Simulated assay, not measured.
Amino acid sequence: MDLNGQDRPTLRRIGLTATSLEPLLDAMADIGHRSIGEGHHATVYDVPGHPSLVVRAGNGVDGMATYIVHGRVALRRFTGIHVPVVHDLQITDCGGMVVLAERLEEIPDEPIWQSLIEAAEFALQGRASPDQIALLADQQPDFMEFARELRSVSGRSHFDTREGNFMLRGGDLILSDPFGQCLFESEVEALRSRLPLPALGRVPQPSPRRDTACPLVL
């Protein structure tokens, strides 16, 4: 499913046509994709020949799916500013999720960026101090509004802001994956109402390996 129109990159266009996760991971290994990051439920790979793209492959539908939906609807105006750009998404036959997205930059180890991340964390909780609000207004002028919208659409005030979930796109601070947990049943239903998903019913397993991809059958 191409999320952003016919001219955007898709999994098929980069050579990933398998509909099950294990054959898809095999194809990625053959093509030369390298792991560049790993979370509990998903692994992120580079895309040979396409340095501006990454593939995120996971053993289940996790909180990233919710964020993608919000990025297409309620948070659309923040996509590419504080929400990552997602080009394509596929739910595999065994219930895994594969995402093709833009490649982001790591946060520099500099005091100004550490102060901005701290301010952003408090803003997301609705607890930013006047000095933090002023810093964000000067350096990331849309972030306070983004934080308010994210709390509103998600009904949450605590997000996954561990190291690696704040990244950069040029000079813009991107919150890459704030829902670092599995979906509840109600969230799966909300996601299915917007995207053509197959039946889902299992908790995502740890990050996929070629010998353990989608070990459970729905």
Rank of each mutant, 00 (worst) to 15 (best):
V203F: 15
G171H: 11
R169E: 10
E163T: 15
G155K: 02
G155Y: 09
L200N: 05
L173G: 12
P198C: 04
R202C: 09
S157E: 02
D177E: 05
R151A: 07
G201F: 08
R162D: 11
G170S: 13
L168D: 12
F166W: 14
F159G: 04
N165H: 13
G164M: 03
P196W: 07
G180A: 12
S186P: 03
P178I: 04
S193E: 08
V188W: 13
L197H: 13
P178L: 10
P198M: 07
S157V: 01
N165K: 06
L173F: 13
R169A: 14
L168G: 08
G171F: 09
R194G: 00
V203A: 12
D172L: 02
L197N: 13
G201W: 09
L200S: 05
A199K: 00
S154W: 07
D177C: 06
L195G: 05
C182L: 05
G155V: 04
I174V: 15
A199D: 08
L200Q: 03
G201A: 03
P196Y: 05
N165A: 07
D177I: 03
L191K: 00
L200E: 07
D160F: 10
Q181H: 13
E163Y: 15
E185W: 08
V153P: 08
P198N: 01
T161R: 02
G164S: 01
G155W: 03
I174A: 12
V153A: 01
V203S: 15
E163R: 15
L168M: 14
V203D: 14
L195V: 10
P198W: 07
L200A: 10
G201L: 09
F166L: 08
F166V: 05
D172F: 05
G180K: 10
F159K: 02
G171D: 13
S186R: 11
G180I: 12
G171S: 12
S157F: 04
E163S: 15
I174T: 11
L183A: 05
R162E: 13
D177M: 00
S157H: 10
P196D: 06
L183I: 09
V188D: 10
G164T: 00
E185R: 08
D177W: 05
S154P: 06
L168Y: 12
V188S: 14
V203Q: 14
P198A: 01
Q181E: 11
S186K: 07
R162K: 15
G171K: 13
R162T: 10
V203L: 15
S154Y: 09
P196I: 05
S176M: 04
R151I: 08
R194S: 10
Q181A: 09
E189D: 11
L191I: 06
R162N: 14
A190N: 00
E189M: 00
H158R: 13
G164V: 10
G164I: 07
D160K: 09
S186W: 12
S152L: 01
G180T: 11
L191T: 00
V153H: 01
S152A: 11
R202K: 13
F166I: 06
R194D: 03
L173E: 11
F184W: 01
E163N: 15
G170C: 12
H158M: 01
S193P: 03
D172Q: 04
G164D: 07
L175T: 02
P196Q: 00
C182T: 09
L173K: 14
